[in-house]
């Protein structure tokens, strides 16, 4: 997803669609606005949150504002990007 000649994002986020209840609080909290509720429904009939795939800063606010224990996992870039 990251393109070779572009600085990689500092963070990354995964959302477990089946654990998400579609409350949208992560979307509200996301500063770079890279989260949104999906158009499709999950098995329980919620529109789960989705990551746009790029632009995550790894701030973790979406994780902290998500009421579900394990719906969101936030990652950070482990090593500095190659110059």
């Amino acid at each position: 997803m990251t393109q070779p000649n572009v600085q990689p994002d500092r963070g990354y986020v995964t959302i477990s669609a089946e654990e998400c209840k579609g409350c949208g609080l992560c979307v509200e909290a996301c500063v770079p606005r890279v989260l949104a509720l999906a158009a499709h429904l999950n098995h329980q009939g919620y529109h789960p949150a989705e990551y746009a795939g790029a632009g995550c800063t790894g701030c973790g606010l979406c994780f902290h504002c998500c009421p579900e224990p394990g719906a969101i996992t936030v990652y950070k870039l482990a090593r500095p990007a190659a110059a």
Binding site: T73, Y75, L77
Partner: peptide
Amino acid sequence: MAEVPSGYTVLHE
């Protein structure tokens, strides 16, 4: 769920 790209480690789980 999307595959996490390489080079990332878990920050919050």
